[in-house]
């Protein structure tokens, strides 16, 4: 499989007035197309910074970042915006939907910034993929947490990105709803979308094929989850998701 993301000795230093914070201290990582990878670590380990850099929201202070073979370091602001728009999808813990816009409009935002003139159908298709086509005209405030997160996922995938970056996507949801959200990620992954999941929950992290553990701005472990553990975690997730549906 081809390499999609390549980090070489990446450092990130934040200047906070007089002191500076060394958030990443030489991280090297390579992620292939179609992988499902979890990044874990305690808070302050640098995983959020890592997310910002992988998501082209931030540039490394030092080191190289190649995305799909392109040197991100040398990109201009608007080129970065274009990569975020075309090749990346974000899912956040707090959903981060626009409160005044309907579900459909929220999903349309990336198409809007792609300067597309017609986007109703694509947005509706994305909603259909997360099973919420009948909620198109609802405002986020009229929806449950799980539904909001599914709309956020629809927004992330509407431009057919290569990678979906999810930052604690189940952090604000109960375990059943969380499992349903995870099932959507698994389905996306099956279709060939690369998933990068940042989480500190071990039973969520274990559902990935590969786990990267961070501490103090460094990668301390990077391993493939063994087949059996992975399959068990997946089955458990499926079970949890189904239970909730039965309850309803």
């Amino acid at each position: 499989m081809s390499t999609l993301i390549q980090l070489n000795d990446v450092h990130k230093i934040y200047n906070m007035g007089l002191s500076s914070v060394h958030a990443l201290r030489g991280v090297s990582l390579s992620i292939s197309q179609g992988e499902f990878i979890s990044i874990t670590g305690a808070s302050g380990s640098g995983k959020s910074t890592m997310m910002g850099i992988l998501g082209c929201l931030d540039k490394p202070t030092k080191g190289e970042y190649y995305f799909d073979g392109q040197p991100v370091n040398q990109f201009s602001e608007s080129q970065l915006a274009k990569v975020r728009n075309q090749s990346l999808g974000f899912v956040f813990q707090m959903f981060n939907l626009l409160p005044r816009a309907s579900a459909l409009e929220n999903v349309s935002v990336p198409l809007f910034y792609a300067r597309r003139t017609r986007y109703h159908n694509d947005a509706l298709n994305a909603l259909r993929m997360v099973g919420l086509q009948d909620r198109a005209t609802h405002k986020p405030t009229e929806l449950s947490g799980g539904e909001r997160q599914r709309i956020a996922i629809a927004r992330a995938i509407v431009n057919n990105p290569k990678v979906v970056l999810a930052d604690e996507p189940t952090g604000n949801l109960d375990t059943h709803i969380g499992a349903q959200i995870m099932m959507i990620f698994h389905e996306l992954n099956k279709k060939g979308v690369t998933i990068v999941l940042v989480t500190h929950e071990p039973d969520i992290a274990i559902q990935a094929e590969r786990i990267v553990k961070m501490r103090d701005g460094k990668i301390i472990e990077d391993f493939i989850v063994d087949e059996k553990t992975h399959r068990e975690a997946l089955e458990q997730c499926q079970q949890l998701a189904k239970e909730k549906i039965a309850e309803e």
């Binding site: 929201l57 915006a81 975020r84 728009n85 974000f90 981060n96 939907l97 935002v109 990336p110 910034y113």
Partner: peptide
């Protein structure tokens, strides 16, 4: 502020 962050994350340029 957060909305601006989200818009940037999904591809809004600074000019937008």
């Amino acid at each position: 502020t957060r909305e601006i962050g989200v818009r940037m994350a999904v591809g809004a340029r600074r000019f937008d």
